[in-house]
Design a protein around this nucleic acid. Structure first.
Lengths: 299, 299
DNA sequence: GTCGGCTCCAAGAGTCGCTTATGCTCGCCT
DNA sequence: AGGCGAGCATAAGCGACTCTTGGAGCCGAC
């Protein structure tokens, strides 16, 4: 009989690569970890870890167990959350993970409303870009993930086992330096920017930019690329190039020395909130999704 | 912390509608069930069962927990099944690395037997010479390494932290071109070959050759050196020189134009299978080692 | 009214798991 | 090459837990 407690320890060992580090993370002593792993290997009937002096690695059986552990532990925590919510303890907490430009706009609005409507609920916020944030969700490291996707169909398949709550469509706008020949154009065709020096954002957005430009018949010359959108705005403001970036990303940035222009053809990214099917039943999670929806419609 | 064991009991209670019946189904006494449910309700923080004189029904929280229990317990049993399959040799993989002349003789025999005895196990094979293969083993890039050593004592120290399974002793034989003055000698003293042009094999074998010749009182003139044993045989067959090489290396090569002769004094290399101490406990690895041993004794 | 089944309660014994303490090996730095 | 620190294993001791046995209370059925 494999016990969930053992799986939790195994996962910590696999994540940290060390018994001692796992013990620190779990808040117990190293011999406890050692004994639990011994017991788990005994009940599994085969070694799960290989100790090679310098590091501890997983055997194939160990990998199998860690893979299952994610689902099992996620199910357990989901069950605990839901029961706790029903128990009316209002000890319910929501662990939210969001991409940077979402956490500065949608999230504050939603969390303020959530706190007003349900005092006692606690929310933790961590920032992570979509590929990583969805992984955290599946691993049970968070309850709700804010993510985005370009073109509705592209990444739909990878989320088909999740609850997807569409929030809003975030239009891409152009950003050019003041004094640029198109600074006062109001609206520009993207092809008009073919010869410019480009400043790109996060990897996903960068790929999207290249795709859009390709359809317009040119390859953008990307001189700078950074995940930091205020930095992108700063670079454009300093006259180092032009950029195309989500409207939400510049909402909380003062576009000093830069001007926004509408870009044709219109391109949008869809911002969604994700959660696990089981978690969607948990009141605090449901309330968080609702508040995010409300914040999105107000924006 | 909700425990899987509790969920199992809860499910039995929900299914049977009675503590006593659940106890009978689970093979324990009724107070045990009673206490477990008490503990589960304590950790859930809310009642899960309503005892109405005649029958016990689930509360909403209880229903939620039972609903989650299905998935969690299914995940646990699935994990157990998969691990048991690996432990029971109905599944699992072994990553084997071998030196070239081993992979064409011992390995095919062993893998055929392994597949016959345990269908479902998968084996991957990569070729690498001993220094590199042992490194791969230590780095976790393979599970079993076929290697060899000359003279039992020389390289023993570097493997003292590994599990060494001796397979067979591979005798060195001489190879001379047809028409050579010693082609029909049957057995030759190595000193008789002092003046010949030599064709050497892999670095380790080359060093061994030089050592043996030094003991016989001469330095071999090595005109060609290649890791490719069929090439060595070909060169000898073409009359370009003589060679001394492991019997196993020429077993799968048709010695066209070349003749083998016994060399005195007899020199052997020991062929062994190596693995890490922890991995030796893994069923698939142990089975692979056994089949290699069996293949070696049959050869 | 009595009986049978079910549940809860209490006490005892055994087991289990954690912690502290200690020894050992390995890698690293001097 | 030797000392040092980190990490893992092991042993003993202790507390907690869980199961069992035995008994009592409760409700419905006959």
């Amino acid at each position: 009989m494999i016990e969930a407690r053992h799986l939790r320890v195994l996962r910590a060992v696999a994540a940290t690569g060390s018994f001692s580090a796992a013990a620190r993370e779990l808040g117990c002593t190293q011999p406890a970890v050692s004994q639990q792993m011994k017991a788990l290997e005994a009940s599994a009937g085969t070694p799960l870890l290989v100790r090679t002096g310098r590091e501890t690695r997983l055997t194939q059986a160990g990998e199998v167990l860690v893979r299952h552990a994610a689902g099992i532990l996620a199910g357990l925590t989901a069950a605990e959350e839901e029961v706790a919510a029903i128990a009316g303890l209002r000890a319910g907490r929501v662990r939210l993970v969001s991409f940077p430009s979402g956490s500065s706009t949608l999230v504050p609005t939603a969390l303020a409303a959530l706190r007003a409507a349900h005092p006692g609920t606690r929310v933790s916020l961590v920032e992570a870009e979509p590929p990583r944030s969805v992984e955290m969700l599946r691993d049970g490291d968070c309850d709700v993930a804010l993510a985005f996707r370009y073109g509705a169909g592209h990444t739909a398949a990878e989320w088909d086992d999740l609850v997807v709550r569409p929030l809003l469509a975030d239009r891409l706008v152009g950003l050019v330096p003041e004094g640029h020949r198109l600074a006062d154009a109001g609206s520009v065709e993207i092809a008009e920017l073919a010869g410019e020096s480009w400043i790109a954002g996060c990897p996903r957005c960068r790929r999207q930019l290249v795709d859009v430009c390709e359809e317009a018949g040119f390859v953008p010359r990307i001189d700078f690329a950074t995940d930091d959108y205020p930095a992108v705005v700063g670079l454009v403001g300093a006259g180092l190039g032009v950029a195309v970036l989500p409207e939400l990303a510049i909402e909380s940035v003062r576009p000093k020395g830069a001007r926004t222009v509408t870009v044709e053809p219109a391109v949008e990214r869809e911002i969604v909130a994700l959660t696990l099917p089981d978690l969607a039943q948990v009141p605090t999670v449901a309330a968080t999704l609702d508040e995010l929806s409300r914040a999105a419609t107000r924006a």
